[in-house]
Design a protein around this nucleic acid. Structure first.
Lengths: 215, 215
DNA sequence: GTCTATATCGGGATAGAC
DNA sequence: GTCTATCCCGATATAGAC
């Protein structure tokens, strides 16, 4: 067993243990032992425990490509957005428990595990693109001033939903489903409303916020 | 009363080191050493490193009492809200660096350090009360359906601002100031707008969200 | 009740030999 | 590429001094 195979074996074992016992509760020693390698070797392939998570993000991003592709079929914006979010939640569902622990780092953009940080930039960009595509292909009309930011706004909305889902203690995360339904209606309604000329001041306010948030 | 002094000494030293080197980078051994006590004693007074942070929250809450009191002077809602938020930011400013590291736990309500968790419930409640008071004393009119939730909504808004501030890399956190200005105007405008009868459906949507979020 | 000293455990991470 | 040994950390436990 060499190189890439060993790496894969370690990653696979680590994720298994994360799912079973949680992230913090799983030690590198355990991972190495169960994978049948020395502790040092695990560190040879992954600089840190965090790095294992980044590898997981990376794989998730690759796997999600076709799934999100398939979600881009609806004719209407709300259907697309719902499909995009649901595809993601479905994919991550088996890992929901340990992902929650990781999202603890979400708020800190300088944490390597934060979805807002540098290491996950590439992943984030492909996600923006999916939202952009949903907007474009459904012919959603958006006022010129807001247009360049709308995909990012939707992405942030999605992150909020995912965050909620991770800590949703309700059975089968039914509360997340409710939230998705209600909030989605609101979001789509707001996008439509936002086009009215009389909403210009509101758009300006939102724009101001978005620009401050983006640096 | 020798005990209380030692406790204070350890807490003070810990916060100093947290400010200087960050939370994760400071060890209990260091804290004890610099405080001139045995490691075991630090654990005698604080069950864990986290417990030191909780003690800090606690003291902050006591200290903030009079400061927030003083902020409740404005005649208008926006002035009050701004004063409340600014008082808090001012108080926490010296600890901004290490607080950022702690907020990493913010998203996880089951973390003992999360501002949304059980251990900080008491603190949270007094904060709600301050927002409620600002609403009451400025005679802010709020539709009956939203009324019971408005203080909590404002509290969440404030937490968002604090979160932004903690990771605001701009000089003197000027971007936070901007964000406070722009967002505050929006919030107040929305509260006023929300009273219009034609906003009933919007209120209902918000209410739905708040109720799902509150369990 | 307050405090020191020390031993011990399992954790993340590293160095260096093979 | 792989392993063994080691380091420092947070945390726990304990024995004993005042």
């Amino acid at each position: 067993m060499k190189g890439e195979e060993t790496r894969e074996k370690i990653l696979e074992t680590a994720l298994e243990l994360f799912r079973e016992h949680g992230y913090a509760e799983t030690s590198m020693r355990e991972i190495a032992a169960k994978a049948g390698v020395a502790t040092g070797l695990a560190y040879y392939y992954f600089q840190s425990k965090d790095a294992i998570v980044l590898a997981f993000y990376d794989r998730a991003n690759r796997d999600l490509g076709p799934l999100l592709e398939a979600a881009q079929k609806g004719k209407k914006l709300d259907a697309r957005l719902q499909a995009l979010v649901e595809a993601k939640l479905r994919y991550f569902a088996p890992n929901r428990n340990f992902l929650g622990a990781l999202m603890g780092h979400a708020a800190n953009p300088s944490s390597p595990l934060s979805p807002f940080g540098e290491p996950s930039r590439a992943i984030r960009e492909t996600e923006f693109a999916h939202f952009q595509r949903a907007l474009d292909e459904t012919g959603t009309r958006i006022a010129d001033d807001l247009k360049p930011h709308m995909a990012k706004i939707l992405w942030m909305y999605q992150m909020g939903l995912i965050l909620f889902w991770m800590y949703d203690g309700s059975k089968n995360q039914t509360r997340t489903d409710q939230l998705l339904q209600s909030s989605l209606r609101m979001v789509v309604a707001l996008i439509k409303l936002g086009n009215l000329p009389l909403m210009k001041p509101a758009r300006k306010a939102i724009l101001e916020l978005v620009e401050i948030l983006e640096n």
